[in-house]
Design a protein around this nucleic acid. Structure first.
Lengths: 137, 137
DNA sequence: CAATCAATGTTATTATATAACGGATTGGTA
DNA sequence: TACCAATCCGTTATATAATAACATTGATTG
């Protein structure tokens, strides 16, 4: 299990991480909170603090355009890698793709602009395969 | 002036657009609101409604990772084009780049995943040239 | 004129995120 | 063991971002 790579997670971190892996989709911090009330989590800060650590460990990604969070689905994910997310606007499904070519091109573009790149957010919106075939709209 | 391309903007749209072009940098909706109180803008919705239209016209872009908005700096910007933003984490400077190659590669990646791409968010974080030379950190 | 549609103004509310404080726990290390 | 430092924790309060709901205005246009 991935969490073992970073030493044991604390109780709150474990709860939040498990909530995200169980969800198999993005959750807002407050959705996580609601799901964990019966486990003793009562305040937003408990969730946000755990999320901060999980983001730092690379176990979780933040989806900026949704203000929500997903467990990293890429087994070897280094938090510094550039990930590409596809977000289905119909069913909400999110896929996480690692693409070296795009990461490289973003680096090159940044270089051209003399910009020292630290992290990249790439989020694609549209319709997933299932939602395309299910309907024309 | 760009606004002439979409017929006259309404009074509120004009106020919000001018606030963004004057700022020469990203502003949150509430920062815009504060700057326009003396012009009769009193409620968040007045700003958000104007922003919705300006986004639709392609005159303004939204920076998801900052929850803020910038006037489009690209004269021919079609709102459907994929833009790449660099965001300096030191001085806050934002640059807007149009790169066909990256747009194309994102399309290809989406195709591989059978994802019907409608819009892409690409935001790069790091340090701009000025902030690199000014300091090592 | 009547019907319609977009834009407006206002109040209230929801959703997202952080500040500030003190206490508890852990892990070294003198 | 006693101490220190660092991290995590729980809580209350607050800040920031965005939308719901409803009434009104103003400009077409058939």
């Amino acid at each position: 299990m991935k969490s073992s790579e970073h030493g044991a997670l604390t109780r709150n971190q474990e709860l939040v991480y498990d909530a995200l892996t169980d969800a198999k989709g993005p959750l807002s911090a407050y959705a996580i909170l609601d799901g964990l009330r019966e486990h003793g989590i009562r305040a937003p800060l408990q969730v946000y603090r755990a999320l901060d650590k999980l983001l730092e460990f690379g176990l979780v990604h933040r989806l900026e355009s949704l203000n929500s969070f997903v467990a990293c689905s890429h087994p070897e994910c280094d938090s510094r890698e550039t990930m590409v997310f596809t977000i289905c606007e119909k069913c909400g499904k999110v896929s996480e793709l690692a693409d070296k070519a795009i990461a490289g091109q973003l680096e090159s573009l940044a270089d051209l602009d003399h910009f020292a790149l630290k992290a990249a957010t790439v989020e694609l919106r549209g319709f997933c395969q299932a939602c395309q075939t299910a309907s024309t709209q």
